[in-house]
């Protein structure tokens, strides 16, 4: 803290550009949306002030809203569950693969592909067998005809089919983060532990896992926020259908705002989304804080 004597004035001047950007790009749009959410407005004509009635409709009378929220939360849980798997793979890579960089990059590949490309790719994988769907044909081939279905058109499974694609795409991303986290742990710690008789899984249990927690936390936050905001994948593959079965908060907001021309109502949903994301971040931070404290 005492290393450099910098006046608060200088500090604020240097922080200013970022602050301005933040205010303009984040704070202003959110405030504008909050303002619009108080109106009944089709986005083009006259606005009609309706107070909080958009919010009460959203919370109490919209049959699509809560299922969408529930699906979004479920997706966040799936994404969180993916991260321990990513950590496990990262540990295995560090331990057993001599030149792991190639593998890590390959796992990372889906992340840099456009969601539209991935969506189209998986759409054709999920196609019915009669139309050359890879998955259904594979199931047929191994004698599991009874398992085949129209993955994206069956309301019972379509949302999971979507989740799977997203999880598949981002697995490599989290592996990369965990892998880098493990690489950053000093080798000396492991050597010292080895002398004390902690090797293999034992070393992981007492050294790798505790030391990788900060990185693990970043992954968790990214996964949760990413899944709360999920939009493009759903839009490309099903557009929320069939009959709202794959609707998540963001697609519901989009459809309400732009397809049904209920701009005010859409804004109310987007404010809900902002609050939900903030809540999730705070919650996760609290959770990790307590677990970090207990480890020290």
């Amino acid at each position: 803290m005492h290393a450099a004597k910098i006046s608060k004035l200088t500090l604020s001047v240097f922080v200013l550009p970022c602050l301005i950007l933040y205010v303009v790009l984040v704070f202003v749009p959110i405030s504008v949306a909050a303002y619009y959410s108080l109106f009944q407005w089709n986005g083009i004509g006259e606005k009609l002030f309706v107070g909080l009635s958009n919010y009460s409709t959203m919370l109490a009378h919209d049959p699509v809203f809560w299922p969408s929220v529930w699906r979004t939360i479920m997706f966040a849980f799936f994404s969180m569950a993916e991260i321990p798997i990513a950590l496990l793979i990262a540990v295995l890579l560090t331990r057993y693969v001599r030149k792991p960089n190639f593998l890590v990059s390959s796992y990372f590949l889906p992340v840099i592909l456009s969601v539209v490309v991935i969506g189209q790719l998986w759409k054709s994988i999920y196609n019915p067998a009669s139309l050359g769907g890879l998955l259904n044909n594979a199931l047929d081939f191994v004698g599991l005809e009874s398992w085949t279905r129209t993955w994206l058109a069956d309301p019972e499974v379509s949302i999971f089919a979507l989740f799977f694609v997203s999880l598949w795409q981002y697995l490599g991303y989290h592996i990369l983060i965990q892998f880098t986290g493990i690489q950053n742990i000093s080798q000396e710690v492991y050597e010292a532990a080895k002398i004390d008789g902690a090797d293999g899984w034992k070393a992981d249990r007492y050294i790798t896992f505790p030391l990788v927690v900060p990185v693990f936390k970043i992954s968790m936050v990214l996964a949760v926020i990413g899944s709360l905001k999920v939009f493009d994948m759903v839009m490309v593959m099903t557009a929320g259908g069939p009959a709202h079965a794959t609707e998540v908060i963001s697609t519901h907001m989009y459809n309400k705002t732009f397809a049904a021309l209920e701009y005010g109502y859409g804004s109310a949903i987007s404010i809900f989304l902002v609050i939900e994301c903030l809540l999730a971040t705070v919650l996760l931070n609290k959770l990790f804080k307590s677990s970090e404290d207990s480890m020290q």
Partner: peptide
């Protein structure tokens, strides 16, 4: 109107699956 239309469109899509 656009809002009733959206309900209609989704309701028809629903007939495809349930």
């Amino acid at each position: 109107d656009p809002s009733t239309t959206q309900t209609h469109l989704n309701s028809i899509q629903n007939l495809f699956v349930s």
